[in-house]
């Protein structure tokens, strides 16, 4: 199976790990992530105002590119995923917004939210299936107690993202289980890490990230996984000593390709 892949700016740069492992593991699972051509940055955050058009066009373009190829669109970064999915939802449900966007891009074919979007985690759950993933594991991560940190962007707004129950998500816990490790559920897994506010108020960001990791640690996690480069950055700057890694790194380790990815 071939899908259109939107890596986003961070995965091309500071979060190369997240990208490399994701592609390699997808191949093992029978899915080729084919990078969209000429993609542009998603903008990092979705502006909720309905009258903001220009900031959402890059998402619409990559959605259209996937539609033209008749493929699903896959993202790995939580922020990209949030922006692209929210934009697609607006294109489906907000008529006046969609009209304005399509008029703005008058020379191009109109788009009305037809593309199916998967976060990489959804791809694992809904397309590959965790049972099949389990069969492919060569290095089960036995004995590891891992906390899944979702943050905000993967889950909220729940109605739009539709990825999981926004208050009681299970997809990453199921992934951890499929890889042979033990998931540690902690309540702060869907509380904010501080996000972009570090630029304005680093103390607030640090406080939030510390609360996340100390809650994970108190519930017995030796490690925390995330899908978001900004979450990882904030969590690592906190006052906690719990290691934070991308979920794709764990996946690569269990599938036995972590070393080859780094060659």
């Amino acid at each position: 199976m071939k899908v259109t892949y939107f890596p986003g700016c961070t995965l091309k740069n500071k979060a190369k790990d997240l990208d490399r492992y994701a592609r390699e593991c997808a191949e093992i699972l029978g899915i080729t992530l084919e990078e969209a051509e000429n993609w542009q940055c998603c903008g990092g955050v979705f502006t909720t105002a309905g009258d903001e058009i220009a900031t959402k066009l890059s998402s619409v373009r990559v959605l259209k590119a996937a539609k033209e190829k008749g493929e699903a669109l896959v993202t790995v970064c939580s922020a990209c995923h949030n922006v692209v999915k929210q934009t697609n939802y607006a294109m489906q449900n907000d008529r006046s917004f969609a009209d304005k966007v399509n008029r703005y891009m008058a020379d191009e074919e109109p788009y009305n939210g037809e593309t199916q979007i998967y976060h990489y985690l959804e791809l694992l759950r809904d397309v590959v299936g965790f049972d099949k993933l389990r069969e492919k594991v060569v290095n089960p991560l036995k004995g590891k107690k891992i906390g899944a940190y979702y943050g905000c962007l993967l889950l909220r707004p729940g109605k739009v993202m539709g990825l999981d129950d926004p208050e009681n998500p299970t997809v990453m816990e199921e992934l951890i289980r499929a890889l042979g490790a033990e998931p540690v559920v902690f309540a702060n897994r869907n509380e904010c890490c501080g996000g972009y506010v570090f630029a304005e108020n680093p103390e607030l960001a640090k406080k939030k990230s510390t609360a996340v990791l100390s809650n994970a640690k108190a519930n017995g996690a030796d490690m925390v996984i995330t899908a978001c480069p900004l979450c990882k950055y904030n969590l690592q700057k906190s006052a906690s000593d719990v290691p934070v890694v991308y979920f794709t790194e764990l996946l690569a380790e269990a599938l036995g390709v972590k070393e080859s990815c780094n060659e």
Binding site: G8, T10, K14, G43, G44, V45, Y196, F198, A199, Y233
Partner: peptide, 15 residues
């Protein structure tokens, strides 16, 4: 040095 591109982009969009 560790700051992801996403962080700067987001901050600009917010501020």
């Amino acid at each position: 040095a560790d700051m992801p591109q996403q962080a700067i982009v987001s901050a600009f969009r917010k501020y």
